[in-house]
Amino acid sequence: MQADLGDLNAFLAVVRAGGFRGAARTSGLSASSLSEAIRRLEARLGVRLLHRTTRSVAPTEAGARLIERLAPALAEVEAAVEVVNAFRDRPAGTLRLNVPVVAVRLVLPSILPGFMAAYPDIKVDVVAEESFVDVLASGCDAGIRYEEKLEQDMIAVPIGPRVQRFATAAAPAYLDRRGRPERPRDLLGHACLIGRFASGAMTNPWEFERDGEVVRVEVQGPLVVSVGAATDLAVEMAVAGAGVIQLFEDWLRPHLATGALEPVLQDWWQPFSGPFLYYSGRRLVPPPLRAFLDYIKG
């Protein structure tokens, strides 16, 4: 049974956007055209693919099974077509990256301006997401993550700074009021600002390291924020004197430089390896991604 490729792409766009209006914005098609494409596809396949409500849509069980096979297949079709770019004088197309917010803040700003100047025919589409994802299923060419356990067919390439540190800090006024910790376990008596990942896991315990000794402290505090989406709120709360924060040193550096935040337990700040760009080894590397790989390796 044949299905129109355009209708399949429309179905995938609607599911990824969570609705017809969102898909219309990202695909350039009208909501009515997308709705008609889904109706044609459902009629051709003889099954219902979407649960529709007035506010959102969600795939049925049949729709979810179709997506599992469809997203990688369409990504492979797109990669095959983009191979033609190798015959152009300059690579062209779209580079889709799935990255955490910290990479948006601390990694990409030092890379993308030069890359986009060197490859003006490549459009960069960045999706900020904290959870580790299958880049093919998400419709992206590559992702950026920190020391994740990758599937065997994923390839990881270093990108950005190779060594970073977690910094612990608080506003001087807070430390004047509550005291300055001298050892990691002193934080048990302090108000700490904690992050929560999309998985539900907390950025707790906090880890410290000095002279090979690693100390983990189960901190407590008055505020929990979503990692990435609400991290800036935690930073601003720390600056306002609400408590102690532990975060990437580069993220806190502007506030440390102005004195709005004061380093805490600086001798114990823990270093860790920098991020990696990861992509699938199951597919041909599309020219935009190949150009990006060459750029960051150069």
Score class of each variant (00 low, 15 high):
I38A: 01
G179A: 04
R88V: 11
A257I: 01
L277M: 05
Q164E: 15
E68L: 00
K297W: 12
S56T: 13
T94W: 13
M154V: 12
V99R: 09
A73Q: 01
F11L: 10
A169M: 03
T54C: 07
E42S: 11
P109Y: 12
V84A: 11
S32C: 01
P59H: 12
A169Q: 01
P59C: 08
A73W: 00
I122C: 07
A242H: 11
M237A: 13
L97K: 07
L8P: 00
S30N: 12
A92C: 12
S199C: 10
G46Y: 13
A229I: 12
P120Y: 07
Y278T: 09
G195Q: 10
F197D: 15
R16L: 09
E61G: 07
Y295D: 10
V77Q: 01
T26G: 12
S138K: 02
S138N: 01
L284R: 09
T53A: 05
L12P: 02
G243K: 03
F115H: 05
L74Y: 08
R48K: 13
D134C: 06
E207F: 14
V102T: 13
A86M: 04
I159R: 09
A156D: 12
I245T: 03
R44K: 14
A37L: 14
N9L: 06
V264N: 00
Q220R: 11
S27V: 14
Q220W: 13
R44D: 14
T26V: 15
K149W: 05
A23M: 02
A79I: 11
D232R: 04
R290Y: 04
Y278P: 01
P113C: 08
D232E: 12
D125N: 10
E209M: 13
V124D: 06
L289F: 04
G28K: 07
G179S: 00
P287A: 02
D176W: 01
F208E: 01
R40N: 12
L175P: 02
A171F: 05
L233V: 11
P184I: 01
P181M: 04
L49V: 05
A3K: 10
V104W: 08
F115T: 10
R282N: 00
V217T: 08
L289M: 07
V214P: 10
P286D: 05
Q246C: 05
D89P: 07
G114M: 10
A167V: 13
V224F: 14
R180G: 00
Q270G: 09
G298L: 11
A118Q: 07
L29T: 01
P59F: 03
L175N: 05
R55F: 09
E209F: 13
I159D: 03
S138R: 08
D89L: 13
R196W: 15
G298S: 14
Q2N: 15
R162D: 09
S33L: 11
D232V: 05
A58N: 07
L284H: 04
E182R: 02
A142G: 10
L5C: 11
K149F: 03
P72N: 06
E76Q: 02
A64S: 08
V107E: 07
I194T: 09
L256E: 10
A260V: 03
E36D: 14
P120S: 06
A37Q: 05
V235K: 03
F132T: 13
R253W: 06
A86I: 07
V83S: 10
P59V: 01
V214S: 06
A71M: 12
L112Y: 15
V124T: 12
V235F: 03
A80T: 04
A242E: 04
